Simulated scan of single mutants.
Amino acid sequence: MLELLVVATFFGYIYYLRNYADLRSKSEKEEAEFSPGVEMYKSGRFDEAYAYFDKKVQNRPKSCIAFLYRGLTQKGRGNVSEAFDDIQTAVSLDDEAYKAHLEFGKLYMDTHDYETALSKFNKAIVKAEETSPQSYQWRGQAYLKLGRETEAQEDFATEKRLIEQSGNRDATSQVKAPFVDKKLIVSMVMIVFTSVLIILGVKDAESVHLPYLVAVFCAIAIGFVEPHKGWLLALMQCVLVLSGYFLFTTQPETSGSRELENFSLYGSVILTFVASFLGGFMKRALNMQ
């Protein structure tokens, strides 16, 4: 039963990391995943980028970003009709992806359909929630084409303000980022549970293997969840394990049992620090790929 709890805890950590700790949208994750093709497109290698995203579309027919960038590469290759089809598909797959609406509007600007372009830019601005200066810049251009000078200037002013705010955030991001955030608090709560598991392993095991296994699995999970703050979680787990063991459990009567539990206890504490470092190293290595 204890082994099952250990495995469930480990995979619970990983599930939390993959689905809740990463606050990016689905399209943002896909764009990061397809970064090689995105770089091809940005560097003007449209044929290579088209081949890359055409394969992604075949393998991931529900991917908004795959269709979006295949459409952009088609536009770069001069295939406007195909670009329209792909970007329209991208919008239909993920209506929340503001970049798809923005690029759709740009296509209508190229065909001088400024009213339709304006509606697409409006959608991009709503979905971006004031995180995209470029959307205001393009809507301002559409307003100018429609002779709506006042509204255009308001959009250009908003664009400038967002750019300035973005620059200020970039300059002070490290200062403003709180050390104790929601993710760390949730992780601390989970550490209480893993500490209990380790204590149970120390008390119930007939050898050192089970508590060591529990400690290693839990500590690797710590490193995965918090690759930069894992030392704090590891320290917290060690304190909870030691205090919980000495304050809330009964010491064995025989010397052999005491030696086994002490060996399991202090070995688990040491492994917590070592394995948490290993888990953080593995997570950082995966992020670099």
Rank of each mutant, 00 (worst) to 15 (best):
S276N: 03
L68P: 13
H228E: 02
Q237C: 08
F104G: 02
A100G: 01
V192W: 15
K120L: 05
C64Y: 00
Q289T: 13
V91G: 00
W138M: 14
L5E: 03
S207C: 07
A152I: 06
I220F: 10
D47L: 13
F104M: 06
Y245I: 06
D54A: 12
P61D: 07
L265W: 00
A8N: 08
I222C: 03
F281M: 07
E259M: 15
R18M: 06
L271T: 09
V126D: 01
E206S: 04
A234F: 07
F248V: 05
G140Y: 10
Q153K: 06
E3I: 14
L210Q: 04
E115H: 10
T249Q: 13
G78F: 06
K106M: 02
A205R: 11
M1C: 08
G280S: 07
L72N: 07
I199N: 09
V241W: 06
Y52H: 14
Y13M: 04
T194P: 04
N168D: 09
E82M: 11
L213S: 09
N122L: 02
V239I: 09
S166W: 09
S135W: 09
E261D: 01
G105P: 15
D204F: 15
A152W: 10
P133C: 03
S187P: 03
E28H: 06
V239Y: 05
M188Q: 12
Q174F: 15
L271S: 09
H112S: 12
K55T: 15
Q237N: 12
Q137G: 08
A66T: 09
N287W: 04
G140K: 05
V196R: 10
S43W: 03
T150H: 15
M236W: 13
F46Y: 15
F277L: 04
Y143C: 05
L5A: 07
G140F: 12
T254H: 00
L102K: 08
Q289F: 02
T254S: 05
A285I: 05
A32F: 11
G280Q: 07
S276T: 11
C218Q: 11
K160M: 01
E130G: 07
R169S: 13
E151K: 07
I163F: 12
E206H: 06
V186Q: 01
D155F: 15
Q153M: 05
